Simulated assay, not measured.
Amino acid sequence: MTSHETKKQLTKEFSGLKYILTSEMRSKLLLTIYDDSKNLDDLRNELKKPSATILHGLKELENNNLVRKVQKYYELTSNGYLITTNMIKLIENWYSVNKSKLFWNNHDLSDLPDDALKNMYLLKNAEYVNSTTSDLSNAFNAYIKQISKARKLKIILPIYSENHFRHLITLLDGNELECLELVISEELENAMRQNEYIKQSILENEKVRIKTIKNNVKLFLTISDEAVCLTLFFKDGHYDDSQILIATDDEALKWALNLSAYY
């Protein structure tokens, strides 16, 4: 968690953040010259604003050591580059959370570590899938579709679900799945060992590696060769199988692997 002193410092620095974000011109100027320096004509053509407005914004950024002029071209200073990089991250985080706001609003996020929460932008391409009254299995079927052709699976499994076990056993019995890594709590492992069929088919299967953690976690994360799937728990503690996030890009894989490594 952020310390009290750090929070006080963040509050002080908010004025600087507000200075950038409350000005559409200042924000757009930083974003426009982020990848490449631009002259006034370039900026006027891209921003569709008069020279006087652009020059006023550039002067303000120069005074704050965020932009400098080299001959006829404007470029970011090192401070400007760092600020703009993190501004982009903030915008992408905002977009990612807002895009799947129903998913995040409905669930308990307490077992997502700070780094996972701060890097939500890595999930900006994730697809939100939910079940409906006409198709109660929509989310689960989307999950099974994603794992059905996997060669390797890494799963943080928080629930005892014979429905999930049955599909995993089918995959293990086939030729596609080469390796299954399960991260489970001591309590869940003990429960699985009470069922002889699950014990032999999963826990004692040579394709399966078990990593046991002391406590259960309120998230169900699956990482395959091509997809990341995340389901969570309601705030009342019950597991929700009706809503899922699915992503198939490298950024989401990076987010999921970091979360998996944390546990």
Rank of each mutant, 00 (worst) to 15 (best):
M1A: 12
T2K: 01
L10Y: 03
E13R: 02
K18A: 10
L21F: 11
M25C: 07
M25A: 07
S27M: 03
Y34F: 15
L40H: 12
D41K: 10
D42F: 06
L43R: 04
R44K: 14
K48F: 09
A52T: 04
L55A: 01
H56I: 04
L58A: 10
L58Y: 06
N63K: 09
N65H: 06
L66K: 12
L66N: 09
Y73M: 04
Y73N: 11
Y74I: 05
S78F: 02
Y81P: 00
L82S: 02
M87K: 01
L90T: 02
I91E: 04
I91N: 02
W94S: 07
Y95S: 02
N98Q: 02
K99H: 03
K99N: 04
S100P: 00
F103S: 06
W104N: 00
N105V: 02
H107S: 01
L109K: 01
D111P: 01
D111A: 01
P113T: 02
Y121E: 07
Y121P: 08
L122P: 02
N125L: 02
Y128R: 03
V129L: 11
V129C: 09
N130A: 06
L136W: 03
N141S: 07
A142I: 01
I144R: 13
S148Q: 09
R151K: 15
I155S: 04
Y160E: 13
N163A: 14
F165Q: 07
T170N: 14
T170H: 13
I184G: 06
S185P: 10
E189F: 11
E189C: 10
Q194M: 05
N195I: 12
R209M: 13
K214E: 12
N215L: 12
N216V: 12
K218A: 08
L221M: 14
D225E: 14
E226S: 15
V228Y: 11
T231P: 08
K235F: 03
K235V: 03
H238Y: 15
D240W: 11
D241F: 14
S242K: 15
Q243D: 15
T248V: 15
D249K: 09
D250H: 10
L257V: 10
S260Y: 15
Y262T: 14
Y263A: 10
